[in-house]
């Protein structure tokens, strides 16, 4: 096994183990921290796929903002300082069998396609993927329209979140 494959197996163990802990642990703050660990594993994966920009943005956006938001939300919505009781519904076995079925279906689909067995080709030397990404996001015959729509979406989310969470409208 080459070094790359060893790193990939270790990273997948980290990601899947942390994801499993996220969905099964009883303490919610620990679930948010296990999510941070899973997201960090995904960062390592992006770095292995040579998507440097996405790896760093994953840390900044997901770990630095979304995970912090989750931790704040968990702390602000609890009645006492510690968790209690089981956090899983009583019919969790239906969800588990559904998950296993979907996984089996997807894996059989992936293995059945011989085209997915290819290995990565080397990126040609003169190609600067970062510059291509920047140009594609603002060039009119590439992806400037989804980019602008995403900015409007973020603005709407910002205004909406602040409005919903503010106490001005309540007359209790």
């Amino acid at each position: 096994m080459s070094v790359e494959q060893i790193i990939f197996v270790l990273t997948s163990l980290l990601i899947l183990g942390s994801a499993f802990m996220v969905v099964t642990t009883r303490k919610l703050v620990q679930a948010a921290l296990w999510l941070v660990s899973a997201l960090f594993g995904v960062t390592i994966l992006y770095a292995m796929l040579q998507a440097n920009f996405l790896a760093v943005v994953q840390v900044v956006v997901y770990i630095g903002a979304i995970a912090v938001l989750f931790i704040f939300a968990v702390m602000l919505t609890r009645k006492e300082l510690r968790d209690q009781g089981s956090q899983t519904r009583s019919n969790w076995w239906i969800a588990a069998s559904l998950g296993v079925l979907v996984l089996a279906g997807l894996v059989s689909l992936i293995i059945g396609q011989p085209a997915f067995n290819r290995t990565a080709e080397v990126i040609p030397a003169g190609v600067d993927t970062l510059r291509n990404l920047g140009t594609a996001l603002v060039s009119p015959d590439a992806y400037v329209l989804p980019f602008e729509v995403a900015s409007v979406l973020l603005l709407a989310a910002l205004v909406g979140a602040v409005f919903i969470a503010s106490r001005k409208g309540e007359e209790k």
């Binding site: 994801a19 969905v23 956090q87 519904r89 969790w92 998950g99 296993v100 997807l106």
Partner: peptide, 14 residues
Amino acid sequence: AALFCIGLFGVLSR
């Protein structure tokens, strides 16, 4: 796919 299914289990059972 495995990560997606674990997430699916989390959504449906918590």
